[in-house]
């Protein structure tokens, strides 16, 4: 996205007005908003158009903003990360795939979508290129979802 910000900023800003959900990484969010704090950056970017915003923070997970609410999805700490290429795209694929499957765009379901995005990104980085995703099974996806639930659930 840096490419579009650097090369056709006006058209890019125009396009943003029509966006419902934008997924970008922390660096892009800071460049776009000219604000270092991601919470402040999110507010600024939402004023540009997107109703919901996902800020991906690589190995540190992702933040979802919208409806004056905020949600954090962790990334699964992995023993071996071979190649981060495509992780953000895999995140977007899992995210939008879950929304299409469920047909539900409530904030609660967007939270689940962010987790499914993180699940797909966690597989992507385990091998070079598309190898891991192309051989992946539904069973592995559901097992990893359980790992995500265990990773971040606790009682008070």
């Amino acid at each position: 996205m840096n490419f579009w910000m650097d090369n056709c900023y006006v058209r890019f800003k125009d396009c943003l007005k029509n966006v419902d959900v934008l997924t970008i990484n922390d660096e892009e969010a800071r460049q776009l908003s000219e604000e270092y704090s991601l919470v402040k950056a999110a507010k600024i970017i939402q004023k540009m158009g997107p109703k919901y915003l996902v800020i991906k923070k690589g190995e540190h997970g992702a933040l979802l903003f919208g409806e004056e609410k905020m949600f954090f999805a962790p990334a699964l700490p992995l023993e071996n990360v071979f190649d981060p290429t495509g992780a953000g795209d895999s995140f977007a694929g899992g995210f939008i795939g879950h929304l299409q499957k469920t047909g539900d765009i409530s904030f609660e379901n967007l939270k689940s979508a962010v987790i499914f995005g993180s699940v797909m990104a966690s597989f992507c980085v385990e091998k070079f290129g598309t190898e891991r995703l192309s051989e992946l099974t539904d069973n592995e996806v559901s097992n990893r979802l359980t790992e995500f639930v265990k990773l971040s659930s606790f009682s008070v």
Partner: peptide, 19 residues
Amino acid sequence: IVGGAATYISLAASFFSNK
């Protein structure tokens, strides 16, 4: 090797959607 944003998005989304 084969890559590209649309390739990764397609593969990841295919575990949830067949459309």
